[in-house]
Amino acid sequence: MTLLLTEDDVTAVVTYEGLHAAMERALGDWHRAGVQHHPRVRVSSGGAGLNVLAGADAVAGYVGVKAYGARGGGRDHIVLLYGDTTGDLEAVVAARELGALRTGVASAVATRHLHGDTTVLGLVGSGQQAVTQALALASDNPGLAEIRVASRTPENRERCAAELADRLRGHGCAVSAVYDTAPACDGADVVCTATTSAVPVLDSGHVAPGTHVNAAGSNSLTRVEIDPALVRRSAVVVDSRDQARLEAGDLLAHVESGRLDWRQLPELGEVVAGTRGPLPVSAETDLTLFESLGIGIFDVTAAAFALAEARERGLGTRIDLS
């Protein structure tokens, strides 16, 4: 029978530390047989839309698909997991929170391999994705001393900072809300952007040499979240070349100018496996940049991890689809 995991089930069993280990393993297997993904497909009726991503993780033992609505906040996210030897539907996993968790963990994995330890985090954005970026980095960095939250709306940045301060109680990390990206980035060794902005929100002049940047907000060629001058200073890694070609608006101007070639972009899996390093955009390089778009293998691996943990704890509801 198929196991249904609700949002409450997923929240009860998934930890940042456990998910980090599972995703890092999958990324290390990135270019080996049985670990692959298909870029996001977007379909629309003219009103509501549907986004679909697919992936296969033979080590975890599943192939799967994630689907979520593109209107009204896209509240209903699900992952369908099929056994890779039987083809049976093993689980239906609620994935709204899981999607935010895996995006945050992807940035934490990238930061670990491209930068190392994080001590001061500048956070640009104040929504759910911003929260999970910060919590994922905190879980992998016991020495994280400070987080500064910048957002255009005062009440949003105050709310986000208060939530992070509460959830990181006992971590020894000071959290504050700041009025702009300049004070958020001042002295930060890692900066994460997680906004829905269509125009740059992170100015190159605010980011010091040696900083690592995780850009997790833009997943459309028509949206540019970071200053093109910052990209020009960066050595770049993407989660997927195929997905970047379709969605990396932050990189598009540099491809069109000839500074970058979609086909040459290194993938995070290659970096984790040790087969490639980040690609410099120009001779001015003094930053590293992870362009995070979100890919199906992350969803399959994360859902498989949630399923294994739920089975171990006896959580979930069995449903008969026959």
Score class of each variant (00 low, 15 high):
Leu268Lys: 05
Pro209Gln: 02
Ala248Met: 01
Gln129Lys: 12
Leu246Tyr: 07
Val207Trp: 08
Ala110His: 11
Asp117Gly: 03
Ala229Arg: 13
Val201Phe: 14
Leu98Asn: 05
Thr222Asn: 09
Val237Pro: 01
Asn51Gly: 09
Val300Gln: 13
Ala161Glu: 05
Cys160Phe: 14
Ala67Trp: 13
Ser292Met: 06
His38Trp: 15
Asp242Gln: 04
Leu168Asp: 00
Ala184Arg: 14
Thr111His: 12
Gly277Tyr: 14
Gln133Trp: 12
Val10Gln: 00
Arg148Asp: 04
Thr2Lys: 06
Val10Arg: 06
Asp227Arg: 10
Ser322Arg: 14
Ser240Val: 00
Ser44Ile: 05
Leu307Val: 12
Ser220Arg: 14
Leu315Trp: 15
Asp203Val: 12
Ile297Val: 15
Ser176Cys: 08
Leu50Ser: 04
His20Cys: 01
Glu284Leu: 10
Val131Asp: 09
Ile78Val: 13
Asn219Val: 01
Leu251Gly: 05
Ala162Asp: 03
Ala303Asn: 07
His113Phe: 06
Ala306Met: 14
Arg159His: 15
Ala161Val: 06
Val207Ala: 05
Leu321Phe: 15
Thr301Tyr: 13
Trp30Lys: 02
Pro154His: 04
Leu202Pro: 08
Leu101Asn: 10
Gly18Arg: 13
Ala21Asn: 06
Leu321Val: 14
Gly104Trp: 13
Arg313Ile: 08
Gly125Thr: 09
Gly73Ser: 10
Gly73Glu: 05
Ala60Cys: 08
Val13Ala: 02
Ser45Asn: 12
Asp227Gly: 01
Leu137Thr: 08
Thr196Asn: 14
Glu97Lys: 12
Gly49Ser: 09
Thr195Val: 12
Ala308Val: 13
Glu7Asp: 06
Ser139Pro: 06
Arg263Leu: 03
Asp29His: 10
Arg40Tyr: 12
Ala60Leu: 09
Gly143Arg: 10
Val79Lys: 12
Val13Gln: 10
Ala216Cys: 11
Ala26Ile: 03
Arg71His: 15
Val43Trp: 12
Glu267Gly: 08
Asp261Ile: 00
Pro280Asp: 05
Val231Thr: 03
Ala283Cys: 01
Gln243Lys: 01
Asp320Phe: 15
Asn214Ala: 08
Thr196Gly: 15
Arg102Ala: 05
Pro154Thr: 09
Arg148Pro: 05
Asn156Ala: 13
Glu97Trp: 15
Pro183Trp: 11
Val231Pro: 03
Gly294Ile: 13
Ile295Thr: 14
Thr86Ile: 01
Ala283Val: 06
Ala273Glu: 02
